[in-house]
Amino acid sequence: MVIDVHVHPAFYEPVCGDPKRVSLRKGVMGYDLMSPFPLELVEKQMAFAGVDKLVLLGEDCAAEGGDVLSNEEISRIVALDPTRFIGFATVDPNRPDALEILRYAFGTLKLRGLKLHPAKQQFYPNDPKFFPIYELCLSYNVPITFHCGMSWQPNTLLKYSHPEVFEEIAVRYPQLRINLAHFGFPWVLETAAIILKYPNVYADTACCYMDCPEQFFEQLFFKLMGPLWVEHNIADKILFGSNNPRFRPARIKRGLEYQPFSEETLAKILGENAVRFLGLEVNGNG
């Protein structure tokens, strides 16, 4: 099974009925020239790329327009095809009612994970005042994807998303499954250290490549890292993520397939690790 764990469905037509809302979303998320497309296109892109499931991430930033891609919208897309889509909740943790929002998202909307964007939402993830959010995720047995490293969205600060700020959470909550998105770019070696050390931490491949995915992943996994680092150390900790619509799943997947990983390692990166991260082996594949 191939699972793309990092997709922002900002332009899926079922959540693009209001042009003003789409325009606000584009501005907040930094997708200037993109435009809505039908779900039929998503299905065809998945078929072409050979991707079975997508993890859909929302976005809530209280200081910038609120939940521009809301939990209800994510839930609505998932309901259209629950075999393909897995919805993650979003909440700005600075909201006083963040826990209430998440209880509704996990309990009623049945969203199956949480996406937090410290750089955008401007909070330090290791601040104890946010620990109740992580404890709530544990109580629902849902994982968290943290934006980690650089973000192309406007009004995002690197200081909130350095891999180091997630270490304390990994230590304090060893049962909490965490994904450091974007492999923490540009701090890829720091990210590698954290996923190597902590069994509950993963990193996804939704990296900001600056050439082409084939060249970028070669640089990342075989030049910046030793040629056997992934194969012998962190093969169980890397998740295929595309960061669509910024990057296309087919191209990110092709970039990974181009690398001299063993078959076993490639299968883990493309889906087997995600099954574990998402808890699908416990909850079933739906």
Binding site: M29, G30, Y31, D32, L33, M34, W152, C208, Y209, M210, D211, C212, P213, E214, P245, R246, F247, R248, R251
Partner: peptide, 19 residues
Amino acid sequence: LHKDYAHSHFLPSYGAIGG
């Protein structure tokens, strides 16, 4: 498919890579 194309870089106007 694989060549050092100048277009293959981040395009702020799109918010995406010129892939």
